[in-house]
Design a protein around this nucleic acid. Structure first.
Lengths: 339, 339
DNA sequence: CTGAAAGCGCTTACAG
DNA sequence: CTGAAAGCGCTTACAG
């Protein structure tokens, strides 16, 4: 591995016959440098293949061109979508991403926030509102914009973008009841704070409709299609009269669909299924599955936009929360009348 | 946003009554510092809440504690799994991840590699073997370990871990033929280099069995379940005698399953379906779907391990490629005899 | 529009 | 086992 000596800003300056400061300026505020100087500098940069050293820049300026992103997991397709939105939002900027995953542990999250903040990032994007008190204190005192994503409702530490999971789930259960299902149940995995809020929405929706029992099957295990099969089997064993399920997310809903098919239960007519997030596969399924649609992509995009707006001087004031809402997508899986 | 002045190494040194160098050493090689000094330093660090400045460290040492990861996309669940493996492999180290996505563009990939390399990362993990010539040149000259993931076969630039997509797909089509299907077809989306290799494996497998026609439907669009439905519909319109499909990946296979159900085609008996990767949902589906299993998680883990081993002095020699293999998982969707 | 000086917070050899 | 000196490659005020 050869360590070819890097080209530095001073060498560019020498080649362009200006001072290093002027090169630095040409890189950051090109319009504050004369056109002639700029031309010579650009040429020198190109010919020498100069690439700025971000560590030196960060040390000298006390800032970094990196947005820290702290999420529970990358292999959860909800966060995968959010990440894609973040990358899309970053396009055209020189900002990079430093990604950390908490595996749903507030301790790990706090540790990551501490480390990320110590690098003086350009901004921080963190999932949810349930940080540890110490983490919240760090974020409140942060010298950069902080965006809490996924959820709105609790007052943001700085900025927030997301939706109300409580109301999304409540809309789901209300839809099931409106379709004429009498004994809806809730299936949940992972049970992170957003899932808890969805469960609360489900319970309140049921209670408002005068339903007394509490038909809920949850597990802390990470969500999956096969888990959906298992949870549904458990549910039927414990509460055979169940005629509809609101699933914590779409994976579980697909699992319920498969398990119902295995048992020759007619989905729609005999069993209503509603998912959450409206993953692309929901509308492709047979029968098509009802879900509560969320816009993970724009969640990521908007989070980056909020950081970028702050960086360019403007941006929303501290305390601003952007509610992206949700949309119930009724499909054949909750069409009780039909068939 | 208050900019509270950071604690520096010198302040820790002052508090611990040693020189800054000793603090630095205690941080990097604790066993080269006396136990007493170490105790005082640890205490000072804790009490002052000192966090090292990575930019200063990077500038002074010419190195960074970050592994650059360059992949096509984060919202593809194959890469999501790989990323999780990478994070698992990182546990217990102080290394971070800088993630870049190429959106399947070799130009963007080259640009990312250039930028990442300019930051002198601890290592670089890049997807595939199809970098631009300029990118290959950069990687060959890199001062850090470079691991090409996803695939083995082409000689690695430095290190590689993956599997042969050609042989995986070939095993898939051979299985379909062995099960007695007469007219298998190939369905492909995205068609990145790995997909192309799978297609080649399919074609060679067919040809070896004496099949003359070339039943292939592909699209450059990103893969999805609904795309699987559409491609299968196209395929049936163009080649009604098709009695089995080898899908480029599991999303498409699930789409084929749903579309077959919609058309009352009996999966298994009338139509064989084989996916690729063996996503968790394949075994949960009804009927369970055959797939070629790949181990994305250990791909990520092993890639990190290779970097870490190099960093600690040892590690595999340049040119080493680790073949993780694949495993055909025969299930009901290709059980032609049954039903 | 341009530049000389100082400094960001560490680590690297080199001594002892 | 410990430390004094120099320097990594930039940017920040401050002048002019």
């Amino acid at each position: 591995m050869n360590d070819k000596p890097r080209i530095t800003l001073s060498e560019v300056a020498l080649a362009a016959d200006v001072s290093p400061i002027t090169v630095s300026r040409a890189l950051r505020n090109p319009d504050k440098v004369s056109a002639e100087a700029r031309a010579r500098i650009d040429r020198a940069i190109r010919e020498l293949g100069y690439v700025p050293n971000p560590a030196a820049r960060a040390l000298a300026s006390g800032r970094t061109d990196v947005i820290g992103v702290v999420i529970p997991s990358v292999s959860n397709n909800v966060f995968a979508d959010v990440m894609r939105g973040i990358y899309e939002g970053l396009e055209g900027s020189s900002l990079g991403v430093q990604l950390g995953t908490t595996r749903y542990s507030p301790m790990t999250e706090e540790q990551l926030i501490r480390v990320f903040l110590s690098q003086r990032p350009a901004g921080l994007i963190v999932a949810g509102h349930d940080q540890s008190p110490a983490a919240r204190a760090l974020l409140s005192a942060a010298a950069c914009p902080v965006v809490q994503i996924m959820e709105v409702g609790p007052p943001p530490i700085d900025l927030a973008v997301g939706l109300s999971h409580y109301h999304g789930a409540r809309a789901g259960v209300e839809h099931l009841l409106a379709q004429g299902y009498r004994a809806p149940a809730f299936l949940g995995a992972q049970m992170d704070p957003r899932s808890q809020r969805r469960l609360a929405g489900f319970r309140d929706g049921l209670a408002a409709a005068g339903q007394a029992d509490d038909p809920v099957v949850t597990t802390p295990e990470p969500s999956s299609v096969s888990l959906g099969c298992r949870l549904f089997a458990d549910l039927l064993a414990r509460r055979p009269q169940t005629d509809a399920v609101l699933c914590n997310n779409d994976d579980l809903a697909i699992g319920v669909l498969f398990e119902a098919q295995r048992r020759n239960i007619r989905v729609g007519a005999e069993l209503g299924i509603c998912g959450f997030n409206d993953h692309e596969m929901m509308s492709a399924a047979e029968p098509a599955l009802t879900s509560v649609a969320t816009d993970r992509l724009s969640m990521g995009r908007q989070a980056v936009r909020m950081v970028r707006d702050r960086l360019t001087g403007g941006g929303a004031p501290r305390g601003h929360a952007l509610d992206l809402g949700f949309r119930l997508m009724p499909r054949a899986s909750t069409a009780r009348g039909r068939v």
